[in-house]
């Protein structure tokens, strides 16, 4: 029974990290064990969710909880039968298109606040990040009213516009940090070599910052895919995304644990896998260039 690991809270792990060297090997292996316990304990709820998704409902409702069971795909089938498909497509479309839009808008803007800076760079950056500080909830009322007035309720493009605005400020900051890592001499050399600004951006700068763009895109994808507030308030049957489906599912399926877990697993899976693959990009992007 692996369940008890969840109770292993890291009470005082770090001080051992700093203990004198003479404790040496024993201390090191203790730390390793602790790291494993913490890691598995923290991940356990997700593991349990995935396991439950493969159970029959009868196996999901047991005391004590069942670790060994005959896996089944029934729950996933049920989730697809309940029509998660279109929601997945909506999520995918809104995520991909808004992320592309963010990059298209943020890349030139970040260039304008880094390599060839406009005046008042600080003010511009301040403005962008300050829009993130204002709570979304304060804007939802007029957004709802306006979207309703122009007949864009339950339209995927409404979400795309809002997700683009939601991720744009963070993306500008991230892209700026990547642009700042481009040596100024590269642009100077390119201009000396006869390249126009547009040409040197395309031929010289873009290849250098493309890993940064990927990092930025990953973070935009995570936030867009996982967004719920706008989606639940502004969409219904036609344009709703996966999180909205999950909410509907919990209402309609009540407390069918296994089915819910299957649905939640499907909802989370794409972004989790993307994040696993691109872990290092995640760090690069989130640290705003504080990490090279």
């Amino acid at each position: 029974m692996a369940a008890p690991t969840t109770t292993e809270r890291p009470a005082t792990p770090s001080t051992q990290d700093l203990a004198p060297a003479r404790k040496g090997r024993v201390g090191a292996s203790l730390l390793t064990v602790l790291a494993w316990i913490v890691g598995i304990g923290f991940f356990f709820p997700i593991l349990w969710m995935v396991l439950t998704a493969f159970k029959q409902e009868a196996d999901a409702y047991t005391t004590p909880p069942k670790l060994f069971f005959t896996p089944t795909l029934d729950q996933f089938r049920a989730v697809f039968d309940a029509g998660i498909g279109p929601y997945l497509l909506n999520s995918l479309f809104a995520t991909v298109v808004s992320t592309i839009l963010v990059l298209v808008l943020a890349t030139p803007a970040a260039f304008a606040v880094s390599l060839r800076p406009v005046k008042k760079v600080q003010d511009v950056l301040f403005f962008f990040i300050s829009t993130k500080m204002l709570p979304v909830v304060a804007a939802i009322v007029p957004i709802y009213v306006v979207v309703n007035d122009i007949g864009m309720l339950d339209n995927i493009w409404t979400l795309i516009v809002l997700y683009t605005a939601m991720n744009l400020p963070i993306a500008v900051w991230m892209m700026r940090s990547f642009f700042q890592e481009v040596p100024k001499e590269l642009l100077e050399a390119a201009s000396m070599d006869g390249a126009s600004t547009a040409r040197s951006l395309r031929e010289v700068v873009l290849p250098v910052i493309s890993p940064g763009m990927a990092a930025t895109a990953l973070i935009c994808v995570i936030f867009a895919w996982n967004e719920f507030f706008f989606a639940v308030n502004l969409t219904a049957a036609r344009a709703a995304t996966v999180p909205v489906f999950l909410v509907g599912f919990i209402t309609s399926e009540g407390l069918y644990f296994a089915k819910l877990c299957a649905a939640a697993t499907l909802a989370a899976l794409p972004v989790v896998i993307a994040g696993w693959i691109a872990q290092n990009k995640l760090v690069q992007g989130l640290s705003f260039g504080a990490v090279k």
Binding site: F42, I46, L246, A263, V272, G275
Partner: peptide, 14 residues
């Protein structure tokens, strides 16, 4: 590390 970052990636609703 992979296990530990997963809760951040998972859809908040899920």
């Amino acid at each position: 590390r992979t296990l530990l970052i997963t809760p951040f990636l998972i859809t908040p609703v899920a």
